[in-house]
Amino acid sequence: MLRIGCHLSSSKGYLAMGKEAVKIGANTFQFFTRNPRGGKAKPLDIADIEAYLDFAKENGIERILAHAPYTLNACAKDEGLRQFAYETMCDDLSRLEHLPEGMYNFHPGSHVKQGVEAGIDYIVEMLNRINEKGYNTTILLETMAGKGTEVGRNFEELQNIIEKVEDTSHLGVCLDTCHVFDGGYDIVGNLDEVLKQFDEVIGLERLKSIHLNDSKNELGSHKDRHEKIGEGNIGLEAFRNIINHPKLRELPFFLETPNELEGYAREISLLRSYYYYPIYKK
């Protein structure tokens, strides 16, 4: 079964997102925990969550993915910004305790010319503090494109974070197709080799979800501009291979393409038509 969804607005609550997902043919979805550019989260609505959980069970909606706001920077130079990141993540994770088997994705951050090692140490410090709270939600580090001073521009940087975290039982990775392509990983011409590198450096058991995004830029551009599926430099054939790859096909896939609901519905339908492709091209 293809587990596929898209990014939905959380402004109307979980039940509304669940109904939107079903309407467009999705069986999972991603959402921002709060305004992606900052701000406080909406008050927790337990009744809405309970109604959503019943709806999800009835309609086969599986593990959903929460996305941290873009303003969160765990390796900022300013201590106040790092504390803000910690407090925001704790608040988000405490809310997600009401959603079983949930996942929480965040961008590792930008070291702002402090150096990658310093940035990694700050991220690790935050994750170790968060682990002391005992949350059950799986936290995912997202692969980044490598623009500016982003941390997580390659598999090695993500592994350097993981290996320094004291308890990694609830720690994984979300692979973004646009980001890794822009970061120089040839998922179009050599998907097997990219997955081999990921396995050797991080371990495929850490890979918990995939953001499906085409790219407006060429391989290795170190930019981050998403494109609709099949309309960018990654191309439809590569996505057909990705969703059918034996090491990926059971993972949940989340579209973050520049679309409204109608466009997401078309992409979900298109990708479903290519699932179970009989011969995976190696």
Rank of each mutant, 00 (worst) to 15 (best):
R153D: 02
R153K: 14
R153W: 00
F155V: 03
F155M: 05
E156C: 06
E156Q: 13
E157M: 07
E157R: 12
L158I: 15
L158G: 01
L158P: 07
L158F: 05
L158W: 04
L158M: 09
Q159E: 14
Q159L: 05
N160P: 02
N160R: 15
N160G: 01
N160F: 00
N160C: 07
I161E: 03
I161Q: 07
I161D: 01
I162T: 08
I162L: 12
I162Y: 03
I162M: 10
E163A: 05
E163I: 14
K164L: 12
K164G: 11
V165R: 14
V165H: 10
V165N: 10
E166W: 03
D167T: 02
D167H: 14
T168M: 01
T168L: 01
S169I: 01
H170V: 02
H170G: 08
L171T: 09
V173Y: 07
V173Q: 10
C174M: 14
C174P: 01
L175P: 01
L175N: 02
L175W: 05
D176T: 09
D176R: 08
T177D: 03
C178W: 10
H179Q: 07
H179V: 05
H179I: 02
H179W: 06
H179L: 02
V180I: 15
F181K: 07
F181I: 03
D182N: 15
D182E: 11
D182Y: 01
G183Q: 01
G183E: 01
G184L: 03
G184T: 03
Y185M: 07
Y185N: 15
D186M: 04
D186C: 10
I187G: 12
I187R: 08
I187M: 08
I187A: 12
I187E: 05
V188A: 12
G189S: 06
N190V: 04
L191H: 11
L191M: 11
L191V: 04
D192H: 13
E193K: 14
E193Y: 11
E193M: 09
V194A: 04
V194D: 00
V194W: 02
L195P: 08
L195H: 06
L195N: 06
K196M: 10
K196E: 15
Q197S: 14
Q197F: 02
Q197Y: 06
F198C: 10
F198H: 08
F198K: 03
D199H: 06
D199T: 06
D199R: 05
E200Q: 14
V201W: 02
V201K: 15
V201R: 13
V201C: 11
I202C: 11
I202T: 07
I202H: 08
I202D: 01
I202L: 10
G203N: 09
G203Y: 10
G203Q: 06
G203V: 06
L204Q: 08
L204M: 12
L204C: 12
E205H: 15
E205L: 09
R206G: 02
R206H: 15
R206V: 03
L207A: 12
L207I: 14
L207K: 08
K208V: 10
S209A: 15
S209L: 02
S209W: 00
I210E: 09
I210A: 09
I210N: 03
H211T: 00
H211A: 06
H211W: 09
H211G: 04
L212Q: 05
L212M: 13
L212I: 13
N213W: 05
N213R: 03
N213L: 00
D214S: 08
S215R: 04
S215C: 06
K216T: 10
K216C: 07
